[in-house]
C-alpha cells in the first residue's frame, strides 16, 4: 500500500477540476517564508517532502497545498528545535487576542 502522497495511478475516474481558486495572502506569505528558510539552509526540499509525507493520511487529503506546506514547515522546524509548537500556539493566541 503506497503512502497517501504517492498518488500516481490511484484509481479514479473523476474529471480534473480546472477551476482556479483566488490566491490568498497567507498562501503567498507561506511560499515566501519557505523561500527565506530555504535560502538559510533551514528547509531543504527533501525535508519539506518528508514533512508533507508525514501528515496524517486523512488530514493530507482534506487540506490544501499550502496548508500541507504549513504543516511541514512547522513540524520540521519544531523537530530541529528552531521553535516549539507551544511557542506557535502562544503567538497565535496573542495575535488573535490582539486582533479581537
Amino acid at each position: 500500500m503506497p503512502g497517501v502522497h504517492d498518488r500516481g495511478g490511484w484509481p479514479t475516474d473523476d474529471p480534473i477540476d480546472q477551476e482556479e481558486h483566488p490566491v490568498m495572502d497567507w498562501e503567498v506569505r507561506m511560499s515566501a517564508l519557505l523561500g527565506a528558510l530555504r535560502g538559510k539552509g533551514l528547509m531543504r526540499t527533501d525535508e519539506m517532502r518528508r514533512g508533507i509525507e508525514s501528515i496524517d493520511p486523512s488530514r493530507y487529503e482534506s487540506i490544501g497545498y499550502y496548508a500541507r506546506w504549513a504543516e511541514s514547515v512547522e513540524s520540521i522546524l519544531a523537530e530541529k528545535g528552531i521553535f516549539t509548537r507551544e511557542e506557535i500556539d502562544g503567538k497565535m493566541g496573542e495575535l488573535s487576542g490582539g486582533a479581537g
Binding site: 497567507w26 507561506m30 487540506i63 490544501g64 497545498y65 506557535i88 503567538k91
Partner: peptide, 24 residues
Amino acid sequence: HPGMAHDEELGYYARRVRAMEAVL
C-alpha cells in the same frame, strides 16, 4: 479542492502561518 480547504481550516492556517512568521 487543491489549495482550497474548509473555511475553518483557511482561518486556522492563515493564523498559523502568521504566528510562525512572527516567531521566526
